[in-house]
Structure formats: C-alpha cells, structure tokens
C-alpha cells in the first residue's frame, strides 16, 4: 500500500486514473493529470476484449490501491483476509468488465466494487462468531518487542478502527474515503452514487459521532495522551495552511 502513490501517478490518465486519489497527483502537477503511461489508455479496453495480459496489467496497476482501501474498510485484518478480498474484487472485476462502458472512471468503478466486496465481507464476518481479541504481541522480525512508541501507535490505530466500526457503513465509507483515501466529496459522490450534499452530510455526522465517541470514552484518554508526546516536527506538518 505504501508505494501506491508514486506508481499510480506515473500511469495516471483520464480513462484509467490512479488508484490513489487523483487529486493528489493532479494538484502536485498543478493541473489535470497529464502524465500517461504508454499504452495505459487502452489497458481497460484490451482487458474488456479478453486480453489476459491486459487484465494482469490492470491487476498490477491497481492492486495496491485496492488492498489499501480494502484493509481500511475491513479495519484490523489479517494479511490473508486482505489477500482474499483483493482476489475477490478482481474476480468480480473480471466478471463484470464487459459491463463497464467507460462512462465513469475505471477507478471509480473499481473502488465501488471494492467497497461492495468489503462491505459484504464485513457483514459476513460480523455474522460469524466473534472471539475475544487478544492483545497481539507486536514483534519485530527478530522477535524482540517493538519500542513503546510503536506499540502505543498500534494500540491507537486499533482503538480508532474500533471507533470507526461503530459508525454506520455509509458514514464509515465516506469518512474513510475522504479522510484516509483523500478523495473529494464529488469523487465520493460518484463512487457511492449519492449527491455531493449527502456525502458531505454523512461526513459531517461521521466526524461528529467519532468526536463524541472519543470524548465519551475515558479509556481513549490515555491513548490520546500519547499524541501530545509526539514530536513537534510532525505537529508542524499538520499545522493549518
């Protein structure tokens, strides 16, 4: 997931946009995305025509973004779970590719499939018996415990995922797409098939609910205190523009 940004911008074009927020790349270049990968424009068309190599290329272009979105939608997930989900997404893409008419961006269509698959997977997961989650012993490759800061960070991530899981699916997906994936409300609007205002409304209530949940949960205070101890340099990165 971590390397998707650069790769996606490299092949970004109007018909086959990047899996990472197009906004990021477009704004970086100061205009509409203009960088194209030779032959990238017709990858989708070739895949639709049944070219297995083109489909393979599509998979390799978009897998990172799909995996990242899937992992965020699932919340804390095992590697194998995300792998299964990515596989299922691309299976559905393959099945439905003939129906893709190019009226929307391919990534919009792909993200929509990813969201649907992730939601179905979440619902299936919730319907299964849930076992008490043990505190995972975060370890490094050599088996030694991670530094305290890393452990605390992991705990915060898990705690926030738990908060996200308390949102409704619609609010959760809008929040993740906007706050974590960096998509604009208009992009999200196209993705989820709702008016922009509806997207903004969901986003507002998602934020409001999360803020309330954080305020209500005293257990989060100790975790939140860790933010205060974080390096100031990072805080300065987040200073208002």
């Amino acid at each position: 997931m971590g390397t998707a940004g650069v790769a996606s911008c490299e092949w970004l074009d109007a018909r086959v946009p990047a899996p990472t927020p197009p906004v990021a790349c477009a704004r970086r270049s100061g205009s509409q995305a203009t960088r194209r990968v030779p032959g990238g424009e017709d990858v989708v068309a070739r895949a639709r025509a049944g070219d297995p190599r083109a489909f393979q290329q599509l998979f390799r272009l978009h897998r990172q973004a799909v995996a990242r979105l899937a992992a965020r939608m699932l919340g804390p997930a095992q590697r194998s779970e995300v792998e299964d989900l990515v596989q299922e997404v691309f299976l559905q893409v393959h099945r439905s590719l003939a129906e893709f008419r190019g009226q929307a961006k391919f990534t919009t269509w792909l993200y929509r499939i990813t969201l649907n698959v992730a939601l179905m997977h979440r619902r299936a997961r919730l319907s299964r018996p849930q076992y008490a989650e043990e505190e995972q012993g975060f370890t490094t490759a050599d088996g030694a415990p991670l530094p305290d800061e890393q452990t605390a960070r992991n705990r915060r991530v898990r705690a926030f995922h738990a908060l996200l899981n308390r949102l409704s699916d619609k609010k959760r997906e809008v929040f993740i797409l906007h706050e974590l994936e960096g998509m604009t409300p208009s992009d999200i609007s196209e993705l989820v098939g709702a008016p922009v205002l509806t997207v903004r409304t969901r986003l507002f209530y998602a934020r409001q609910e999360l803020a309330a949940l954080i305020a209500q949960d005293p257990a989060l205070e100790s975790l939140a205190a860790g933010f205060e101890r974080r390096p100031r340099a990072r805080s300065s990165e987040r200073s208002p523009a």
């Binding site: 915060r156 991530v157 995922h161 974590l180 409001q208 803020a211 954080i214 939140a224 987040r238």
Partner: peptide, 11 residues
C-alpha cells in the same frame, strides 16, 4: 472536530 486530527493521522 480537532480532536479527530491526531487519530486520523495515526491511522
């Protein structure tokens, strides 16, 4: 909702 900012950043 400034209280969300560090959590989002962590995620």
């Amino acid at each position: 909702f400034p209280s969300l900012d560090p959590w989002v950043a962590a995620l």
